[in-house]
Every structure is written in structure tokens, then in C-alpha cells.
Design a protein around this nucleic acid. Structure first.
Lengths: 170, 170
DNA sequence: TTGGAATGTCAACAAGGCTGACTTATGCTG
DNA sequence: CAGCATAAGTCAGCCTTGTTGACATTCCAA
């Protein structure tokens, strides 16, 4: 672990373990791990004239079918213009369907088509495979800690969104 | 935890806890947490005509002073043209210094100037503050698990780079 | 019924990735 | 020493994906 201080055991309540060096290692771990996290889907997408933004849209439409554009916007944290460009190509290519709202005709509800679902599967299979390998290698306790820290790192708004998705998802 | 299966306890060696739903939650946690992770430095940088790419360069030059351009390239995983654009503005603005190598004059060794160090401090203070809060909230065991999973998620090359930085850093 | 709010679209621009082609300076090896 | 390899930098041009601004449509409430 090579942290230059004590408190390396697992049971310590010590508050001294948060040296700048330890925090910096966490920061770098996040950076390098995120690269791995996105690498596999990126590889698939690069052959398809799509990018990471398309992946994100497809992921969350699959996760919450029938979501409105506005809702998707707040999940993704981009401007509606930015999302729209991505969405348009997905609709043109027949991966996403946009249905006018029944009660409020201003709204568009988004669904994956069969082709869209198929791509979603391909992408998330790749990502899950890596995730599964990492989880297996690290073990259940590490996974629990991993999730706890990630959640604590989110902005409150994002944490709320994250929880809402979890409720609907299971 | 509401995962629809058993194996929710912490001590299980069960291999059944890796449902697609659990993995997807991990994926979403990564996504939302990374947003939080970059939010604070991004805010500082947006007022300064710099972006995330500048932050990364500054971070790793600070971490490994005297690094060559080539070495920085392999850490960041971008092309030299892409890095060069960023590096040029940092040098022009007097945040980074580029010294011709003493033994091999083809190489350029990169250092932060005082102004560069100052900005680095501002940026990493912001990022560390969030990290520290998350670590505190999650506790030492969770932090250990967090790091273990992140490391398992990296590509082997990145893991090697990550370890090399840790050795030099401590 | 009319004005404001919400929703979605179009256009233009910037950051920061990428490839490809090339130059310059230097190191190394036959 | 000649010639190839390596490190760095530059120019040009492309793509994705973020941004703002302007605008059309729709809903709802005063």
C-alpha cells in the first residue's frame, strides 16, 4: 500500500489516513479507471459513426423507456441542443422512436426500437463484462465500498437521480 | 439494496451477486460520480479560458516534474498534436516551463512555474476537498474497496502507469 | 384570449479529440 | 562519417460534443 503513514489496517477509525498523497492517488485511480470504463463501448462505437454521447442516450432510454426529452436532459446534464443532435441521428437511423405525448403534446416520449435495443445490448455487454471481471477480482466487500464512495462523491442532484433510477430499475 | 436476488449480505462468497442489474447500477454510479469528480476543477477552469485537458497536463507535470513530452503523452493517452495545443498555451502563458534535455537534447523536460504551481494547488484543492469529504463519509474500509475495484477496472497498461506514479509519488 | 412558460428545433461556434504529412534537431549504429 | 531512428513540434483538416442565441409550437392560467 506504500502510503508512508500508519493506519493501513482495515479496522482503523483514524482520521489521519487522508493525506494529500492518498487523496491524489484516489484522484488518479478515478482518472485511469474511467478510461478503462469507457474503452470497450468506445471501441464498438468508433466503427459506427456514433460516439459516447449516443451511448449515454441509448443507455438511459433503455433504462427508463418513455422518458421525455426534458427528463433525459436532466439525467445527462447537457443542454437540450446538444442532446437533440444526438437524438436526431438516432431517430433517423431507426434506433430510437419519438412519440408525441398524449396528454401534453409538447412532450416527446422516447423508446428504443428493436435495432436500438440490439445495439444497447452490444454496448452494455461489453461494459458489463469488464465490470464483472473487476467485481470478481475485487470481491463483494470491495464492491460495497466502491459503491459507497462513488455515491458520496456525487453532487446531491445526481445522487437523487441515481436513486430514482435504482428504484425504477429493479 | 433491492436487487431481486439473495446474496445481499456482506460476507458472502456467492458468485450470484453479479446480476446484470447490479452491474448496471455500478456503471451508472461511475457515470454520476465522475461528473462530481470533475465538476469543481471545471468550474474554476471555465473562468480562465482553460479546459479539462489543461488540468490533466498540469496535474501530471506537477506529479512527475521533469517528465518528457513523450512520457506525458503515454500517461494521458492522447496524440502529441492534441497535447501540443494544450502545452503551447500553458507555456505561452507562463504556467509551464520546457527545458531542453541535458543528456539527450532532443527531449524537452516539463516543469511547472510558480504561477503553474499556484493554479495546480487551486485545482487540486478543490478536487481533494470533495474526495476527502467522500472518503470521510464512506469510511476507511469502503475506501480500500473503492481503490481495489478501480484498479481492477483499469487496462493493464494504465495500471502499470498508475503504479509507477505511486512509487515516485510517495 | 392573450401572454408567459415549457418543449423542442435549427444554426453557428469552440474545445479538444483524431489522422496525415512534414520539418528540425539529435542520437546511434554500421 | 553516412544514414537511419527517435523526439519534438507544426500545419491542415476532420469529427464529436459541448455551448449560446433565435425561433416555433404547445399548454395553461390570468
Amino acid at each position: 500500500m506504500a502510503d508512508g503513514h500508519g493506519a493501513s489496517g482495515h479496522g482503523g477509525e483514524s482520521l489521519l489516513y487522508l493525506t494529500d498523497e492518498q487523496l491524489r492517488q484516489g484522484i488518479e485511480a478515478m482518472f485511469f479507471a474511467y478510461r478503462g470504463f469507457t474503452a470497450d463501448p468506445d471501441r464498438i462505437l468508433s466503427g459506427l459513426a456514433y460516439g459516447r454521447a449516443h451511448h449515454r442516450a441509448i443507455h438511459f432510454i433503455n433504462r427508463a423507456p418513455g422518458t421525455t426529452v426534458n427528463n433525459l436532459l436532466s439525467i445527462l446534464g447537457v443542454t437540450k441542443q446538444s442532446l437533440n443532435r444526438v437524438l436526431r441521428t438516432l431517430i433517423e437511423d431507426g434506433l430510437v422512436e419519438s412519440r408525441v405525448g398524449r396528454t401534453d403534446k409538447r412532450e416527446r416520449h422516447l423508446y428504443l426500437t428493436d435495432a436500438g435495443s440490439e445495439l444497447e445490448q452490444r454496448l452494455s455487454d461489453a461494459q458489463r463484462t469488464r465490470m464483472r471481471a473487476a467485481y470478481r477480482a475485487a470481491g463483494p466487500e470491495a464492491v460495497a465500498g466502491f459503491r459507497t464512495v462513488l455515491e458520496a462523491m456525487m453532487d446531491p442532484d445526481m445522487r437523487r437521480t441515481y436513486h430514482k433510477l435504482r428504484e425504477s430499475g429493479t
